[in-house]
């Protein structure tokens, strides 16, 4: 099989990032790293969908203000979320005078938008691109599971969709953090049918992408200071460790999972940890970005993972395949 690791020849740098999260995420262990948080996840809106859109607008607006740019300075926005027809990102973008491309790869959407943006800038026709993803616990529950007020029990394998937005501004002007290469994953299906067991659905995809990345870039695990999967959860990341060991690669202390980092599993009743399109984007754009900026982390591999299913596909007996893309960041 052909290896889909791409090296970006021109420099692609992170200009700045912005994160806004919900109350539960702000109470979590990474609370102090986020730019902003809201104390009411409805934000005074009539619906949670509207609240998610509001959050997304605020994050992009904040990123523009922070960097001192106007709408016209940005060439493109590549965004996505988990709602039907990615309507959250689409309605967000009607507030901006910026060209827009919508993307969807479930919870791996953030990686997809980063890779697309980096490739477009590398191609030479784009200067500055914003990549953003949002998710909201209340809209995702409704999208993929049951009504919020329904008194049902969550399985021990279930995960908690992160409420928040993470946005990254990429450009070609030299900055501190550079995206040097990326590996595009394929859809991997090992036949897991339990849509609640997302860790098990996505772990094989994460393994395949990670192995492909290590092979394609001729690096080993020790090259990176941090290897970060998107939302495998606690059990799922344990599973990935096992799967990697099967292939003779030992993921040591350097391996972490955004979903596990985002919440305090014991105290916050989140099942196996966080998930959602905003899980990897909010953790990367806050915690990881700041750690890289102060030089604590020099090389980071981000592997957002997505479980590709819908309510309909699950009901029709389809198994849940996973997808994962890897993006490598280095201090320039």
């Amino acid at each position: 099989m052909k290896n889909h690791t791409v090296f970006f020849k021109s420099g692609i740098y992170i200009e700045d990032t912005a994160t806004i999260v919900g109350p539960k995420e702000a109470e979590g262990p990474l609370g102090r790293y986020f730019d902003k948080s809201v104390c009411d996840d409805l934000l005074g809106q009539k619906s949670h969908e509207k609240a998610e859109i509001r959050l997304h607008i605020s994050a992009i607006r904040y990123l523009l203000n922070k960097t001192g740019h106007k709408d016209g300075d940005v060439d493109l926005c590549i965004s996505g979320d988990l709602l039907d027809e990615i309507v959250g990102a689409s309605l967000t973008m009607r507030e901006f005078d910026i060209p827009f491309m919508g993307v969807y790869n479930a919870c791996a959407t953030f990686a997809e938008s980063l890779i697309l943006a980096a490739s477009l800038i590398d191609g030479g026709n784009f200067e500055r691109i914003i990549c953003s993803t949002s998710s909201h616990f209340c809209t995702a529950e409704r999208q993929y599971r049951y009504p919020l007020e329904l008194g049902n029990q969550r399985t021990p394998l279930s995960q908690w969709t992160a409420t928040g937005v993470g946005a990254t501004m990429l450009n070609r002007v030299k900055g501190k953090i550079r995206i040097d290469c990326a590996t595009i994953g394929r859809v991997v299906d090992y036949g897991v049918k339990d849509a609640n067991d997302m860790g098990a659905c996505m772990a094989p995809a994460a393994r395949e992408t990670l192995l492909a990345h290590l092979e394609g870039s001729s690096r080993d695990v020790d090259y990176y200071d941090l290897i970060l999967t998107g939302d495998l959860g606690e059990a799922g990341s344990g599973l990935l460790r096992l799967l990697m060991e099967e292939k003779g690669v030992k993921l040591g202390e350097k391996y972490r999972d955004c979903g596990v980092l985002l919440f305090n599993k014991a105290a916050q009743d989140v099942g196996q940890g966080g998930s959602g399109a905003a899980c990897s984007s909010s953790v990367f754009n806050s915690y990881v970005y700041k750690k890289m900026m102060c030089g604590e982390l020099k090389r980071v591999l981000l592997i957002p993972t997505g479980a590709l299913c819908s309510k309909t596909s699950t009901l029709q007996g389809e198994s849940v395949p996973g997808i994962a893309h890897a993006v490598s960041f280095t201090l320039a």
């Binding site: 021990p156 094989p204 096992l242």
Partner: peptide, 13 residues
């Protein structure tokens, strides 16, 4: 793999 996750993943108490 399906057998592995049946063994390794946490179950309801």
């Amino acid at each position: 793999y399906l057998k592995l996750i049946k063994e390794k993943m946490p179950k309801s108490k």
